[in-house]
Design a protein around this nucleic acid. Structure first.
Length: 211
DNA sequence: GACCAGGCACATC
DNA sequence: GATGTGCATGGT
């Protein structure tokens, strides 16, 4: 028998269709977006990314070589710009040193080592690491974000206080480990959250899961 | 004007 | 190990 989570996925997909995540022109841009979107609306991140492109800085070396103040100024619309400038550089330092700024080279390493390596970087937590792994490096890792957590809580898949790894395991143990499935599922949960009942203060229209 | 958004690190108890 | 706080913009 199919798990509830698998059924819910089918329902969401039938309702919303493919979400075409991650919205970006390159895999490197996905990584930049993953760091910039920490606790920030995607609309603001888009403005920051637009600024980066306008200055022709969308490359590992160019971003890394920007003075901190300048980088902060460029990504300002994304909020927390001083912290995020540092976090970007923390990642870029590792990315340039070990992978010469190549996403493909990085993707050739096994997932487990990569995840550990990413989590070692100051400013990269579990969600950002997993977003990078799934959406930029195309590794079958499920991303847990605020929407996903609210979804699991409100549909009673977990209890209050459950940790990140616990929630992640729920998806990864039940579903087939498929990059496309994980990609679409998480994107659909965010879509559900934005449109319907997973906001911090739900203003519930008719939830598509109930029909 | 308050609240929220595709988190994370650090201080303190 | 749990809980609180700073980081900051822009849309609703």
């Amino acid at each position: 028998m199919k798990s509830n989570l698998a059924l819910i996925y089918r329902k969401l997909y039938a309702c919303f269709g493919p979400q075409f995540w991650w919205p970006a022109q390159s895999r490197f841009e996905v990584i930049v977006g993953a760091i910039l979107t920490q606790n920030t609306s995607w609309l603001n991140v888009e403005k920051a990314i637009k600024n980066i492109k306008a200055g022709k800085y969308m490359s590992p070396k160019k971003l890394y070589n920007l003075p901190d103040k300048k980088l902060a100024k460029v990504i300002r619309p994304a909020g927390y710009y001083n912290i995020k400038a540092r976090r970007l550089k923390n990642f870029l330092k590792v990315f340039l040193k070990y992978y010469r700024g190549s996403v493909s080279r990085m993707a050739s390493v096994d997932v487990k080592s990569l995840r550990e390596e990413l989590l070692e970087i100051n400013g990269i937590g579990p969600e950002t690491a997993d977003s990078i792994l799934l959406y930029a490096l195309e590794k079958p890792v499920f991303v847990i974000d605020a929407y996903t957590k609210r979804f699991l809580l409100r549909h009673r898949f977990i209890r209050e206080g459950s940790g990140y790894e616990e929630m992640q395991l729920l998806f990864m143990k039940t579903l087939r480990k498929d990059v496309n499935l994980f990609n679409e599922y998480h994107a659909l949960l965010v879509r559900l959250g934005k449109d319907f009942c997973l906001k911090a203060k739900p203003r519930c229209l008719v939830c598509p899961l109930k029909s």
